[in-house]
Every structure is written in structure tokens, then in C-alpha cells.
Amino acid sequence: MLADPRQSRVVLLNPARGSVAGGAEAFAIRCFEALALLPTCRDLLGVQLIAFGDYRPSSLSAEVAAATEHFQSEALSPWRDPAFAAHLADAHVGIVFFGGLYLEEDVLIAAIEGATRGYEVRLLSDLAFARREADRQLVVNRLAHHGILTTTVRQTLFEWAVARDDRALTLRIQQLLS
């Protein structure tokens, strides 16, 4: 089933978290192409971008920072934030796309907890930075066991365009992605 952008949110966990793995700078460099598409998700399709945990707008492009709403809660437990829960309920959100630092820690736990709470959860692999790259496939396998699909921002952007059933919008997104 195609994800409806009106029922979707993109959530980044700790996009500015620092560590020996490179932290915010490595995340921004490695995920540059995918991050650059996020304002398009908001501007053309109305999909909001939310950040939890360690977040510094200066570590992202001005466009991405302007498109991001930051919740002050801890990234490990976004589901316990009453404002986030209200935001999802008020907007009738049923699909949450996760990315951020670190895939095998905060992203893994938040994704599984979201699926447990009844949300359709997807992993944006091009926005999910692992502390240990060797653990990536193990995490993806574990998430799949919980019904969590892995995708990319590019795939999702096109999926959202097709789900809107707007030929002009779909062609515009195709052109953007080519």
C-alpha cells in the first residue's frame, strides 16, 4: 500500500549527536542528498519534518532547518512526548518515517516502539546513520521482523506523489529526481 503524504511524518532522531563516529558533521555529509530533498517533501506534499533530541539547526542547510520542527524530548522515547502524541493524533498521522543518529540505538528502539503502538513505521535508510556500519544489516533485518520497511527519501518522495493521484505533481517529482 502506498503511503499517503497527508498521513505521514518524517522524524529525525539526534541529527546533531556527537561521537567518535563523526556525529552531526558526518551525518550532514553522508546524508546530504537525502536531506536536501526534505524541504520538497514539505513544500510540495505537506509532509512535516520533526527532530527529537540533539538538534542544531546550524548543522543542517538553512532550507532543511527551516522545514524542521524540533520537539525538546529525548530521542530514545519520542512516543512519551504528549505534544508529539497530540500532533500525530490531531493530524491523523498513521505512518512515521524514521532516520537519524544512531540506527542501532535510538532509531531502532523508536521504530519498534512506534510499530508496537500501531503506527506503520518505515526506515529512511539514507537518513539513518549507524555508529557501527557493520550493524546496519542486523538492524534492518530486525526491523523487518517487526514489519518495518526500509526505503529511501527518493523512493518515498515518488511514492507520496503517486499516492496523491496528481499527474502534474508526479511528473514534477520525477523531474526533480532525475
Rank of each mutant, 00 (worst) to 15 (best):
P5A: 07
P5Q: 03
R6S: 14
S8I: 11
S8D: 09
V10E: 04
V10I: 10
V11W: 13
R17A: 06
G18S: 04
S19H: 05
A21V: 11
G22C: 04
G23T: 03
I29Q: 15
I29H: 14
R30H: 14
F32Y: 12
E33R: 14
E33A: 14
A34D: 09
A36Y: 00
L37K: 04
L37G: 04
L37M: 06
L38P: 03
L45Q: 10
G46M: 07
V47N: 03
D54V: 08
P57M: 03
S59D: 02
S59M: 02
S59A: 06
L60M: 05
S61I: 03
E63P: 01
A65S: 04
A65G: 02
A67Q: 07
T68N: 08
F71E: 00
Q72P: 13
E74R: 14
A75F: 01
L76A: 09
L76K: 03
P78M: 01
P78F: 00
P78W: 01
W79I: 07
R80H: 07
P82S: 11
A83F: 15
F84D: 02
A85H: 13
A85Y: 06
A91M: 05
A91H: 01
V93Y: 11
G94H: 04
I95K: 06
V96P: 06
F97M: 14
F98G: 02
L101K: 08
Y102A: 12
V107A: 00
I109K: 09
I112M: 11
I112F: 02
E113I: 10
A115R: 12
T116A: 01
G118M: 01
Y119K: 06
L127T: 02
F129D: 06
A130M: 01
R132H: 12
D135C: 14
R136D: 07
Q137M: 12
V140E: 10
N141S: 03
H145A: 15
H145D: 13
H146I: 13
G147M: 08
G147H: 06
L149Q: 13
T151W: 08
T152A: 05
T152M: 13
T156I: 05
L157T: 00
R164V: 10
R164W: 06
D166S: 07
R167G: 15
Q174N: 15
Q175P: 15
L177E: 04
